[in-house]
Amino acid sequence: MAPSLCFRTFILQFMLLVFSILNTSLHASEPPLTLEYYASACPNLFEIVKKEMECAVLSDPRNAALIVRLHFHDCFVQGCDGSVLLDDTITLTGEKKASPNIHSLKGFRIIDRIKNNLESECPGIVSCADILTIAARDAVILVGGPYWDVPLGRKDSITASPELAEANLPTANEGLATIISKFLYQGLSVTDMVALSGAHTIGMARCENVRARIYGGDFEATSGSNPLSQSYLSSLKSTCPPVRGVGDNNITAMDYVTPDLFDNSFYHLLLKGEGLLSSDQEMYSSLLGIQTKQLVKQYAADPVAFFQQFSDSMVKLGNITNQDSFATGEVRKSCRFVNT
């Protein structure tokens, strides 16, 4: 017999309580970040990052989503320490080839260009972790999203962890309770999770990650309980064939209404049952999503509330720190390699 809704709700609430308690010890201290960290040492920092991001987004609006995703994937592994930017070497295995990253992360050359410009302007001063955090903010602004102040002073890690990338990063077909637990582990609330997921309004997804949502059946999809409209489904099937390994790298917008504009239409799609990722649609359609459903409704109805919470949640995301990096970290000369 299937467990009752009350029982499932109790289990979810219990899990959230446990992770909240664990999280208190993992993220108890505030990071030593300040708004004026580079005011004297590199006063042109923000202008340099902004100029390069303007060029990148003007050439391809999709670059905005690529940089935001890089920032997210960095912060969920060892904190926001630039570890996601490291290439593999003989002595270090980076995070780029971990399964959640290997096909989904791009935009590294944009960060390289920003770093090169800053090394010419103020060598050895600005960390790659800080560059990525500022670039993510500017990326959102350049496609119509909100502004927020970015606290700075992060150090670059001299390590990476593909193992934590595998364990910590949310994936497209995970259930709501699992996704929530991964956010709570990082010190981010359910509200933060729903707001940060709104970045998918400018994101693209690979067919490999949405095939379960489209076809169901052997693909173990949740699409049976959260069916897509026939017109949307037909469009997706024309892009993503049903056979594994065929067209896996084809991409489709997670917000097909305004894919290059940062707005709240992502939440309107969830209300219609047309969230592209199963994990996104679960926020509205899951029987366990009592709080998440209300937040989806709120952000769909009130874009100002969404922008404000997204800004606040991005600051929290950027404040996830690797305490070890402050003791042993550095300012890399190249974002791809630790200093020798």
Rank of each mutant, 00 (worst) to 15 (best):
P3W: 10
T9F: 08
F14W: 14
F14L: 15
L17Q: 12
I21S: 08
L22I: 12
H27N: 14
S29R: 13
E30R: 12
E30I: 06
P32G: 02
Y37D: 04
Y37Q: 05
Y37H: 15
A39Q: 15
C42F: 04
L45W: 04
E47N: 14
K50A: 10
E52S: 02
D60V: 00
P61G: 01
R62H: 09
H73N: 13
C75Y: 00
F76H: 03
C80L: 00
C80I: 00
V84D: 00
T91H: 12
E95M: 09
K96R: 15
S99G: 05
N101H: 10
N101M: 03
I102C: 11
H103N: 14
F108L: 01
F108Y: 15
D112G: 00
I114P: 00
K115H: 06
P123C: 03
V126C: 01
C128H: 04
R137E: 05
V140H: 02
I141Q: 14
I141F: 07
Y147R: 11
P151Y: 07
P151T: 02
K155W: 10
D156I: 06
I158Q: 11
A160P: 01
S161T: 04
S161I: 03
P162N: 06
E163D: 12
L164I: 08
P170E: 10
T171R: 15
E174F: 06
L176T: 03
T178D: 15
I180A: 08
Q186L: 01
Q186F: 01
L188V: 00
T191K: 15
S197V: 03
A199F: 11
I202C: 03
I202L: 07
G203N: 11
G203K: 09
A205E: 13
E208Y: 13
E208Q: 14
R213Y: 09
R213F: 05
D218M: 11
E220K: 15
E220L: 13
A221N: 12
S225A: 13
N226C: 11
L228D: 05
Q230A: 13
Q230D: 14
L236D: 08
L236V: 04
K237W: 09
S238M: 12
S238N: 14
C240G: 01
C240E: 09
C240S: 06
C240I: 07
P241C: 07
R244M: 12
R244K: 13
V257N: 08
P259G: 06
P259H: 10
L261K: 14
H268N: 12
L269S: 03
L270D: 02
G273E: 09
G273K: 04
L276C: 04
S278T: 15
M283W: 05
S285L: 10
G289N: 08
Q291K: 15
K293L: 05
Q294T: 06
A300Y: 07
A301D: 14
D302R: 04
V304D: 10
Q308E: 14
Q309T: 09
S311N: 04
K316W: 01
N319C: 06
N319G: 01
T321C: 08
N322W: 08
N322Y: 07
F326S: 02
G329I: 07
V338Y: 04
T340V: 09
